[in-house]
Amino acid sequence: MTEVQKSEGEIPFDVPDAGKPCKTWYTVLGSLGDTTSPALIGLHGGPGAGHEYLVPLADLYSPYGIPTVLYDQIGCGRSTHLREKAGDAQFWSFDLFIAELDNLIDYLGLRERGFFLLGQSWGGVLAAVYASRRPAGLRKLVLASAPASIPLYVQGLQGLLAQLPDDVRQTLEECDRKGDHESEEFQEAAAVFNERFVCQLDPLPEEIVEGFRNMKKDPTVYFTIQGPAEFVITGSIKDFEGWKQAHTIEVETLLLNGKNDEVTSSCMYPWFHAIPKIRWVTLDGSHMSHWEDRERFMREVGDFLAN
Rank of each mutant, 00 (worst) to 15 (best):
A191R: 11
P276T: 15
Q226S: 10
R279Y: 10
P38I: 12
G119K: 00
W271S: 01
D180P: 13
D95P: 02
H51P: 08
M215R: 12
G33A: 13
T68Y: 01
A58H: 04
S132T: 09
R113E: 13
E10M: 10
Y153T: 04
F231D: 01
L204N: 00
R133S: 08
K6E: 00
D284L: 09
D176S: 15
A131C: 09
A18N: 08
I275C: 08
V168P: 12
N260H: 10
T220F: 07
F97A: 00
W25F: 10
W243Y: 15
R196G: 12
T224L: 03
E173W: 01
S145N: 11
L172W: 03
G211H: 05
A229M: 03
K20S: 11
P219E: 04
R299W: 01
T24Y: 03
D106I: 13
P38W: 07
T35I: 03
F193M: 09
D102T: 09
A127N: 09
E8W: 02
R213K: 08
R134Y: 04
P16D: 07
A190G: 08
E250L: 14
Y61V: 13
S93P: 13
T35E: 14
P219T: 02
P203L: 06
E174A: 15
H44P: 15
E188P: 01
A89H: 05
E241R: 07
S149W: 09
A306P: 01
L160A: 09
W291D: 02
I11T: 11
D202R: 11
L57N: 00
D202I: 03
Y53D: 00
N307S: 14
L96T: 12
L96I: 10
G159R: 08
I225E: 04
T224G: 02
A89F: 07
K244A: 13
E250Q: 13
G45T: 00
I150A: 09
Y222E: 10
P38L: 10
D239F: 07
A144S: 14
K216V: 05
A189V: 14
L96Y: 02
G30C: 13
Q155P: 02
V142N: 04
D14I: 04
C22V: 13
K140E: 09
H181K: 03
T2L: 06
M288P: 00
K216D: 13
M268G: 00
G227K: 04
P228T: 03
C267F: 02
K277D: 11
Q120D: 01
G242H: 12
T253W: 06
E207L: 15
E210C: 09
P38T: 13
E10T: 14
V281I: 15
P228A: 01
L43H: 08
I278F: 01
